[in-house]
């Protein structure tokens, strides 16, 4: 199989979850992932729904906001994800990298995207995740 085809099929099969309380950001992020070739995208806005969906789908990658639409925040979702789906790569998203960066790293986050997003940062994180998936398959 040609490399481009292999890359395409890997992207299509990758399960990606966006956990974010702002619907517009969630939708725009999903648009971005679709344009990068992802087809299995799940969107969730509350911590409770996120944990249920992670348990059910065991996504390959999660983009996780810290502030969510209910009383379960992103840090708790991260902790829970490490228990129920340890192979899932969790990338945190927040404007407060200085406050949460170290803590989320210690909790096992794979990466941190600082808001507002920069195209280069998004692209780097995405390529890093993809390369690991490619290496692991």
């Amino acid at each position: 199989m040609a490399i481009a085809q292999l890359k395409e099929s890997l992207m299509e099969s990758m399960k990606v979850m966006i956990i974010e309380d702002e619907i517009d950001i969630c939708d725009l992020f999903a648009d971005y992932l679709e344009m990068r070739g992802c087809e299995k995208i799940f969107k969730v806005s509350t911590g409770k729904d996120a944990i249920a969906k992670i348990e059910q789908e065991k996504p390959d990658v999660i983009f996780l906001d810290i502030q969510l639409a209910d009383n379960i925040n992103g840090l708790e979702v991260l902790r829970k994800t490490r228990e129920i789906s340890p192979d899932t790569k969790v990338i945190m998203m927040s404007a407060y990298k200085e406050e949460y960066g170290q803590q989320t790293q210690e909790l096992g986050a794979y990466g941190f995207l600082k808001k507002p997003f920069r195209a280069d940062d998004l692209s780097k994180v995405f390529d890093r995740v993809f390369k690991e998936k490619e290496g692991g398959s």
Binding site: I25, F117, A119
Partner: peptide, 9 residues
């Protein structure tokens, strides 16, 4: 955040 993400998209 929305402006920057929409620009990226």
């Amino acid at each position: 955040n929305k402006i920057s993400l929409a620009a990226i998209v």
